[in-house]
Design a protein around this nucleic acid. Structure first.
Length: 807
DNA sequence: TATGATATCCTTTTT
DNA sequence: GGATATCATA
């Protein structure tokens, strides 16, 4: 402590304290832009400088990219020892630990990681096998229930023992839910597979059932650091709890105001009650924002102040006042995109900035479409981040299917995917028969087919199928040999060629097929890259000689990789498009938040209860605080939804921003649309609106050749020769819908009478029957507290939005 | 069994 | 509007 470390230079008082006091539990409340990453990296670097062994540090981040960046920054401070820090997402770190311990838990070491599609397919199979109605038992719904059970560490046994869950499932008319969950887990294990949630659940089971294993990791990881703690779920929370039991050197960093992942089971309580969990925890508050202008920080604060559930902190900026937040309004979503893109082009050009200083953020992925079209039309380079776009491609999933089956022959989902891909004459009936045989023998489909190959049959069609199956078996065997004999890249290439996948696309001479071939090549390149990387690590002595690159390791890495983690190789000077969720942790000079409309942002389903609405508000806060110098918000009056136009009103969040920070030329009050505007006179108002967006209007093909005025030939679904242009030249506008929207708008906006009173009995679509306990008036609505009894308890809802019926 | 046509969901957010 | 699922037909 005698000499000051270089690492501490330039830190403010709060940051300094948070870096230096690394022993014992600490909670770092880090407001947006407060130098959180800097504190985390400096803290770790400082620890190493003070003699803490890097191997004893476990740092968990939210994305792989964040981990990579942190490691680089630490390396810059303390050099190559940083390589020995265990760092990554919860999922990737524990996937590796599980691999080391898989066998004692009844999983193969080469277990496969199931992504959500695999999980859903398996659930579908189970539902079918049990002859349950796929009307009531929707795979997606079942999958999400299983997922939240796992995130809350509820095993199938516990699930079925719970009377609360049983009644809940009966209410939802899925009484077999527990059985399906049990069967699902059984089948995953049979298949030697873990889904995303298993990676956390099974880690907990490992630590619970094998205390000596837990003890080993407790000794190994004496210092724990968790980033984005406000977004951890119960399973993650418990892992940390367990690991910290012996040496409570646990440092969590987060911001309750940025908790936006409750749909994934994240519990904001984890951060709110850290002090209760670790009573002698030290608390550090990083409140100075170094990222944004005063205007942006203050505006964001004024919005988040509408939330009741907050931790006390005061975020401020000492930067410039900066420009006011601009709010733009367009008539249609299409026009909104035009407006935004022209605006950002002007900004970038006049200021001489880079495209990469601009981000366009939206609430839902589908909003990117309109923006992409305009960007492409104006030849502005852009980069779009979209979930796991890699697996969205069939050719990639097929390639991975082969590789998975070779690594883990028990993986029935992979087997089903590829047995007839590319088509080799083994149809659904044959596959079902194989599945049935496997079921009856209690083996995997691969084992079933493997045993079947030697058998003879007299039936000629059966014989033909048997021959084809035998060919498939031979193919997989050959590829397995290739895996052992060849390097990673060559093996991948063998899979692509011998399987016939590559050939099947080359035969087709379409641009889509070409892109598929490109994707396959890209996949093979990642194999090569991975191999080179591992070899470099071995040469540098960071990795043992015998620990060569394996296809298993590559595959799990790939499964746990998100689009976020992919580095762009062909130049970075591009406008960024992404959801607000993916923007967390990032910053841009210019930020555009589009679609600031009621029912979109905040989203319709989130507005059902107060918690949901508050989370949307935090999301909006996250969006706003991404901006360094200028934030621009926009909304449209009409938006294409499910193929027809729907009206929307400006988001309540726009009017929640303190007006002194806003620059807009229209009234922001959500209640602005009055009855006269669209009342009985609705049609003419509509016509006026139609006229103003005749761009789309004409594009949709007016029969009189008006479309020829448009120089831009856009793909037009109504222009196809088979289908005559519809009589009224506005096929996309469904007036019946408009009237509907219309009446509901006028009815609720003008005055806000409340249909509910204390003591009323109501029915809710998800929570069931309840009694109203309290009614509080809001600006344009009422907040009601409803007691639902057993599983749900008391909920605070917004009268107009909650799906309630009075009984 | 493979292909093309029609029906149906969809739109919250992701490791 | 679009992707995916299911169905009808050769």
């Amino acid at each position: 402590m005698a000499t000051t470390s270089k690492i501490l230079e330039g830190l403010n008082a709060a940051q300094h304290d948070a870096v230096v006091n690394y022993e014992g539990p600490s909670l770092i409340i880090a407001g947006a832009g407060s130098g959180k990453t800097r504190v985390l990296t400096s803290r770790i670097a400082y620890m190493i400088e003070q003699g803490v062994r890097p191997e004893s540090i476990l740092a968990l981040t939210f994305t792989n990219k964040a981990a990579k960046e942190m490691r680089e920054r630490i390396e810059a401070m303390v050099g190559p020892q940083s390589r020995y820090i265990r760092m990554g997402t919860f999922h990737s770190v524990f996937a590796r630990i599980l691999r080391e311990n898989a066998e004692r838990m009844g999983y193969p070491q080469a277990y496969t990681i199931y992504e959500s599609n695999d999980a859903k397919n398996l659930i579908k199979t189970i539902i079918k096998e049990r002859n349950l109605s796929d009307e009531k038992y929707k795979p997606g719904h079942i999958a999400s229930r299983i997922s939240s059970a796992k995130n809350s560490l509820i095993t199938p046994g516990a699930y079925m023992a719970s009377t609360t869950l049983a009644t809940e499932d009966r209410q939802r008319q899925i009484p077999e839910m527990g059985t399906i969950y049990l069967e699902y887990c059984k089948r995953c294990k049979q298949n030697g597979a873990m889904d995303f949630d298993d990676l956390l659940l099974q880690t907990n089971i490992l630590f619970r059932d094998f205390p000596q294993v837990l003890a080993e990791y407790q000794e190994r990881f004496r210092y724990l650091l968790v980033d984005e703690y406000q977004d951890t779920n119960f399973a993650q929370y418990t892992i940390i709890r367990r690991l910290a039991l012996k040496y409570p050197n646990v440092c969590v960093v987060g911001d309750d105001a940025q908790s936006i992942y409750s749909f994934r089971g994240a519990k904001i309580e984890n951060i709110l009650s850290f002090q209760r969990d670790y009573p002698d925890a030290k608390i550090y508050k990083l409140e100075q924002n170094y990222r944004s202008t005063k205007t942006i920080v203050d505006a964001a604060n004024s919005v988040i102040n509408h939330n009741a559930r907050r931790m006390k902190k005061r975020c401020f900026s000492e930067g410039e006042q900066g420009e006011k937040i601009r709010i733009l309004k367009a008539y249609t979503d299409r026009e909104e995109a035009d407006m935004i893109v022209s605006d950002l082009r002007d900004k970038v050009r006049t200021a001489g900035d880079e495209w990469s200083e601009v981000a366009i953020l939206y609430r839902t992925n589908n909003q990117s479409q309109a923006l992409e079209d305009v960007l492409r039309r104006k030849a502005i380079p852009y980069r779009i981040y979209k979930g796991n776009s890699f697996y969205d491609h069939k050719e990639i999933r097929d390639m991975l299917g082969y590789i998975r089956l070779i690594i883990n022959p028990r993986d029935d989902e992979a087997f089903k995917r590829i047995i007839n891909t590319p088509a080799r004459g083994i149809g659904a009936t044959s596959v079902e028969r194989i599945a049935a045989i496997a079921q009856s023998r209690g083996t995997s489909m691969w084992d079933a087919v493997d045993a079947l190959v030697g058998m003879q049959s007299d039936d000629p069609t059966e014989k033909a199928v048997a021959r084809k199956v035998a060919e498939f078996v031979a193919l997989i065997r050959e590829l397995s040999l290739a895996r052992e004999a060849k390097g990673l890249y060559d093996f991948g290439l063998e899979v692509a060629t011998r399987s016939g996948i590559l050939q099947s696309y080359r035969m087709l001479n379409t641009p889509e097929a070409q892109s598929a071939v490109d994707n396959i090549e890209e996949l093979l390149n990642t194999l090569q890259l991975f191999n080179e990387q591992v070899e470099a690590e071995i040469r540098a002595g960071e990795r043992e000689e015998f620990d060569k690159a394996t296809i298993e390791e590559w595959l799990s890495g790939l499964m746990l990789m998100s689009d976020m983690d992919n580095e762009e190789e062909d130049g970075n000077n591009k406008v960024t498009l992404m959801t607000v969720h993916s923007a967390k942790g990032l910053e841009y000079k210019y930020v555009y938040i589009v679609g600031c409309e009621e029912n979109l942002f905040p989203s319709m389903q989130a507005m059902e209860d107060i918690d949901g609405l508050e989370e949307e508000r935090r999301l909006f806060y996250v969006a706003l605080t991404r901006a360094k110098s200028l934030a621009t918000l926009s909304c449209a009056e009409m938006r294409f939804k499910w193929g027809n136009m729907e009206f929307s009103r400006p988001s309540r969040f726009l009017s929640e921003i303190d007006p002194q920070y806003v620059d807009s030329d229209f009234d922001l009050k959500p209640a602005r649309r009055s009855a006269t505007n669209l009342g009985e006179d609705g049609e003419s108002a509509l016509d006026a609106l139609r006229r103003r967006f005749d761009y789309r209007y004409q594009q949709k093909g007016t029969p009189q050749g008006a479309s020829t005025q448009r120089p831009q030939p856009t793909r037009s679904p109504y222009a196809s020769p088979q289908r005559p242009a519809p009589e009224p030249p506005r096929p996309t506008i469904d007036t019946s819908k408009m009237r509907r929207v219309n009446t509901s708008t006028t009815g609720t906006v003008t005055s806000a009478p409340c249909d509910y009173a204390v003591g009323d009995v109501v029915q809710h679509t998800t929570f069931g029957r309840g009694v109203i306990r309290d009614v509080t008036p809001l600006a344009t609505d009422h907040k009601i507290t409803v007691e639902f009894g057993a599983p749900h308890g008391s909920k605070t809802l917004i009268a107009r939005l909650a799906k309630l019926t009075k009984l």
